[in-house]
Simulated assay, not measured.
Amino acid sequence: MAVQNPYQSYQNNSVTTASPGELTLMLYNGCLKFINLAKKGIQDGNIELKNTNIQKAQNIISELMVTLDSKAEVSKNMMSLYDFINRRLIDGNIKNDITAIEEAEAMVTDFRDTWKQVIQLNRARQHAGNDGRA
């Protein structure tokens, strides 16, 4: 019987048991992590670190784009914003432009913070609606 890394087990369980809203929050957090690693790559002159992590951030943005409901008006607006973020990441990668990457980072941070608030409000509403009576 192989002993699994407890951290890896926790990570796997947190992903498989997360709600769709929590998964979106995880995507935003992952994207920010990769953006920060890419910025470090630029600062350190490590082109491979920069490129690999910008591509990972772009993959997350692409995943967020795919999950949008194309019929909803807000989704069309989000698609444009995600597309802008993706283009800024590409510019940052090609030109080693930290400013472009930081623009993308600021937008992803805003989305993440807003999404986190939505999750917290939904949880508060669920708990308020569940007052323990049968």
Rank of each mutant, 00 (worst) to 15 (best):
I42W: 11
V118W: 00
L64S: 01
N12S: 11
Y82C: 05
S19F: 03
A128D: 06
Q126N: 10
P20S: 13
S9N: 13
Y82P: 05
I35Q: 04
A124I: 05
D83R: 08
L49E: 12
N5T: 14
R133N: 14
M65Q: 15
M107R: 02
Q55F: 09
I101L: 11
M78R: 00
G132N: 07
N46Y: 04
I61M: 05
K71N: 13
S62T: 13
A38K: 03
E63M: 06
N53K: 05
G45C: 13
L32D: 01
L68E: 06
D83I: 12
A2L: 13
T114Q: 09
N13A: 14
Q43C: 05
L49F: 02
L89G: 03
D113Y: 09
S75T: 01
E102H: 09
K39H: 07
L89I: 08
D69P: 01
A18Q: 09
N51A: 14
K95G: 03
M78A: 15
S75V: 06
N86H: 13
I35W: 02
E102F: 02
A134T: 07
P6V: 15
I98V: 15
Y7E: 12
G41M: 06
I94M: 13
A128L: 14
D131S: 12
A18K: 10
E73M: 04
I42G: 02
Y82V: 09
D91P: 00
I98A: 13
N96A: 09
I90K: 04
M1E: 12
D69H: 02
H127L: 14
D83C: 12
R87V: 09
N5I: 14
L27P: 03
S75N: 04
T99E: 15
M26T: 08
A57R: 00
G45D: 11
Q120Y: 01
V108L: 12
L89N: 00
A72H: 08
N96C: 08
L121C: 02
N5F: 13
K40F: 10
N29D: 10
Q58V: 08
I85S: 03
I98R: 01
G92A: 04
I47L: 10
Q126I: 00
Q4T: 15
Q11C: 08
S9G: 03
N29A: 07
M78L: 15
I94R: 10
M107D: 01
F84C: 04
N36C: 09
I54Q: 05
Q8L: 13
I85M: 10
R112S: 09
A106T: 14
A134Q: 13
S9I: 11
D131R: 08
K50F: 02
G30P: 02
T17S: 15
M79F: 15
Q117D: 09
F34K: 02
I90D: 03
F34D: 00
I54K: 06
D91L: 06
E73D: 14
F111E: 00
E73Q: 08
M65V: 07
D83N: 13
F34P: 00
L37N: 06
D113K: 03
V108M: 10
N46P: 02
Q117M: 14
G45L: 13
A128M: 13
T52P: 00
I60K: 00
S70C: 00
A134R: 12
A72D: 11
